[in-house]
């Protein structure tokens, strides 16, 4: 088990390094010169050249890469070309907001999706059909559009929920429970959007997985033993159906994170996604590189977590994976 996790962690690290390297060279390949953006359109060629030298852009790409990687690993992530602020401070301020949004929505969408999918698989009939239509519609709905529709309804029509940011303009003057209420009100729409978009996929998957498991011989035996249908559904079918769902959780993390990029852009949510989008638009190399690295790390960590959960839930994986040490997982 431990050996497997170490191996997975190493391959995760390889992915992060790969992503970062790819991004670095793509950025250098692309047209557009941050030095020129920085000095403005009226600058003389000499000024542009001086700025390029100051940013280290005049050296060969592999050398720039080595220098950048060395500094990055040591924690020096540079300063933003566009804002002049240290990149690390920008991301340190941003990632908790993303984790809060993505983490909560992950919990909620899996809880709701598993409940819906289980209901569909056990009840069947009309209810199943109706919920199937609902879940495929949610699955097909782009988050940014659903977000806009929710804003139209709850912000413009009903006027009950704020549409922008993580806290109100008057947040600094609030005290006690008002702070919490303000935060929750701002969280409501982005969280609802991201969650609803995720529920559809999860419900579809859980329904399919449960129907697959329900056809296995051991379920027929459980029924034949005279166990109540509810007990069979919960203890035997759902439990086994959840193993592939846990794997899906790991695989869906990049998608969820991607979705969060759009949602953050719509709701002006101050997270990593928004930093990334703004950095990309402003061609802010250091910010884009760091935001890419952070999002790759978050995705890889999520995948590791999901794999750890799978091996905890499924003894076959647990023992199979750590084959060098039988019984090491116990």
């Amino acid at each position: 088990m431990l050996l497997m996790l170490v191996r997975r962690a190493l391959s995760g690290l390889a992915v992060v390094v790969g992503v970062v390297t790819l991004m670095f060279f793509l950025l250098r390949l692309a047209p557009g010169d941050p030095a020129r953006l920085l000095v403005g359109p009226a600058a003389t060629p000499e000024q542009v050249e001086a700025q390029r030298r100051a940013l280290g852009l005049d050296r060969p790409a592999p050398e720039q890469y080595a220098a950048w990687l060395g500094r990055f690993v040591q924690g020096d992530w540079g300063t933003s070309i566009a804002t002049g602020r240290p990149v690390r401070a920008m991301l340190a301020a941003a990632w908790p907001a993303t984790i809060r949004l993505v983490g909560l929505s992950l919990l909620l969408s899996y809880a709701l999706g598993i409940a819906l999918g289980a209901l569909q698989a056990t009840r069947g009939g009309r209810l199943d059909t109706a919920l199937s239509v609902l879940s495929v519609a949610l699955f097909a709905m782009p988050g940014y559009w659903l977000g806009l529709m929710l804003v139209m309804l709850f912000t413009y029509r009903l006027g009950v929920l704020p549409a922008f940011g993580a806290a109100g303009f008057d947040a600094d003057y609030l005290t006690g429970w008002d702070v919490v209420a303000d935060r929750l009100r701002h969280l409501a729409l982005p969280l609802a959007t991201l969650t609803l978009v995720g529920v559809g996929g999860t419900a579809r998957y859980v329904r399919g997985a449960m129907l697959d498991v329900a056809g296995s011989p051991f379920v027929a035996i459980a029924r034949a033993k005279g166990l109540s249908p509810a007990r069979v559904a919960l203890r035997h079918v759902l439990r086994n159906a959840l193993i592939p769902v846990l794997t899906l959780l790991g695989l869906s993390l990049p998608a969820l994170f991607s979705g969060a990029v759009f949602i953050e852009a719509i709701f002006a949510w101050p997270g990593v996604g928004r930093v990334l989008v703004e950095g990309v638009v402003a061609r802010d190399y250091p910010v884009v590189m760091a935001a890419t690295a952070v999002s790759a790390v978050l995705v890889v960590l999520g995948n590791l977590l999901a794999e750890a959960l799978v091996s905890w839930a499924d003894p076959r994986v647990r023992d199979g994976g750590g084959s060098a040490m039988p019984g090491a997982g116990t």
Binding site: L27, A30, P31, P254, L276, V280, A296
Partner: peptide
């Protein structure tokens, strides 16, 4: 490796770097 890449991040980057 490609499966593990954050697709939207890559898309954003590529789409914004070229016209």
């Amino acid at each position: 490796f490609a499966l593990a890449l954050p697709r939207v991040v890559l898309l954003l980057l590529l789409a914004s770097l070229w016209q």
